[in-house]
């Protein structure tokens, strides 16, 4: 299964993956982030209940230095 993560195509096993599984695979569990699926923000409380599928566009964002 291919999905767009932060603009890059990434391959995953299976036909779907939960947001929580994706966060685990990307080693982001202890980090602070926000995540969006196809333009919709996914609440951190619902990561286990939201699935990503083939072709989904996912944005994972954080805070960086800025003025």
């Amino acid at each position: 299964m291919k999905m767009y993560i932060n603009g890059s195509i990434k391959e995953f096993n299976g036909i779907k993956i939960t947001a929580r599984e994706l966060i685990n695979q990307l080693n982001l569990n202890d980090k602070r982030f926000a995540i969006e699926k196809n333009g919709e923000i996914i609440s951190k409380n619902f990561l286990e209940g939201v699935y990503f599928n083939e072709g989904d566009k996912i944005e994972i964002i954080g805070a960086v230095g800025g003025g």
Binding site: N6, L26, L28, E59, I60, G62, V64, G65, G67
Partner: peptide, 10 residues
């Protein structure tokens, strides 16, 4: 303090 919001470097 201000911060910018950007894609996380995966």
């Amino acid at each position: 303090v201000t911060v910018a919001i950007r894609r996380i470097n995966l």
